[in-house]
Design a binder for these strands. Structure first.
Length: 309
DNA sequence: AAGACGAAAGTGGTTGA
DNA sequence: TCAACAACTTTCGTCTT
């Protein structure tokens, strides 16, 4: 195939400096990074479903297209022009380094490029802040260097790294969300997440229910009052030691459910359960505990009286 | 009829011998 | 490595609104 076929202008910036990436079957504008044309070749993994129910089979959309590669993450030993002013010893060192650089880079960095593309895709799907993406990239890179990816799919490690990064930055996503975005099974993400964090010696504090409140509340379209009330409830719950050992999402969900009730913005358990990624049963259990320990009954009773009138 | 509630059985992970 | 265990889910029947 002749490259001339693709000599055209970038619709975005008008540049004719287009670059055909054979491996990915894309044409990218070198000036603005726009993917001018992609040839729809699916290099993604075909993940099979081992469950009986086939309808849950998921594909994660077109894999690894967008993103420009090498987000300044790959280290480069400079070119010969950098040699000016170096002594002989340093020169040798320089060449040695570059030789190694070239060897390693082919293997590791190629993998890294693909992984980072996947990471960006999932990250943007979840609307994660840049800092989290970069943290995840860092984690992934360290994982690769430690050889932790062996025996695991690249995608699952990426998902695990993202999950870890989210929690570190106190913007946690649930495993369900990660699963939805990456197409990897929840269990698998959890597994690799635990594995990677343990192997890298990261200390991860259990995520705080409060961190979920804002996101869940907006998903449920709750008023700010309900939201701050639920945080209030959470604080009390923590003092009453109702939170340790429980899943943070369940607690957050229950707190939201109660505060919505109190403020007359009733949501069904089903609705709350869905956005929080837990079941109604869990909400009920937490809800019951909250009522029992935090004497919120008064508030509920007031509410009921109001409704009767 | 839909939502809330609760019991019972099942799942996957952690812990401690 | 295995069994006990806690948290959570699934499923299903009953009660309430």
């Amino acid at each position: 195939m002749a490259d001339e076929k693709y000599v055209k202008k970038c619709p975005e910036c008008g540049s004719i400096n287009l670059f055909w990436n054979r491996d990915r079957g894309e044409i990218i504008c070198k000036d603005c990074g726009l993917v001018v044309e992609e040839k729809m070749i699916d290099f993604g993994q075909e993940w099979r479903e081992f469950d009986q129910k086939g309808e849950s089979k998921r594909r994660a959309g077109a894999p690894m297209t967008y993103t420009q590669y090498d987000q300044g993450l790959g280290t480069r030993v400079g070119t010969s022009s950098d040699l000016y002013g170096l002594g002989k010893k340093d020169r040798n060192k320089f060449f040695r380094l570059r030789k190694w650089q070239n060897r390693i880079s082919t293997a590791i960095e190629r993998n890294l490029k693909l992984a980072l593309a996947e990471l960006k895709r999932v990250g943007s799907y979840l609307k994660l802040p840049k800092s989290v993406e970069e943290e995840a990239a860092r984690i992934y890179t360290m994982a690769v260097q430690k050889g932790l990816v062996r025996g695991r799919s690249m995608e699952s490690v990426v998902a695990g790294a993202l999950y870890a990064a989210c929690r570190r930055h106190e913007v946690p996503r649930t495993l369900d969300e990660l699963s939805e975005a990456s197409g990897i099974e929840k269990k698998e993400i959890g597994r690799t997440y635990r594995f990677v964090t343990r192997e890298l010696g990261m200390n991860i504090l259990p995520s705080n229910p409060e961190e979920y409140i804002a996101r869940f509340a907006s998903a449920l379209k709750l008023s700010p009052e309900s939201q701050s009330k639920s945080i209030d409830i959470l604080k009390k719950a923590q003092k009453a030691e109702l939170t340790s050992g429980r899943g943070p999402t369940g607690i957050a969900a229950a707190a939201l459910y109660v505060s919505a009730l109190i403020h007359g913005e009733k949501r069904t358990q089903r609705e709350v359960a869905d956005v929080a990624g837990v079941t109604e049963v869990t909400i009920r259990n937490r809800y019951k505990e909250l009522l029992a320990k935090l004497n919120l009954e008064k508030d509920i009773k007031k509410l009921k009286k109001k409704n009767k009138k």
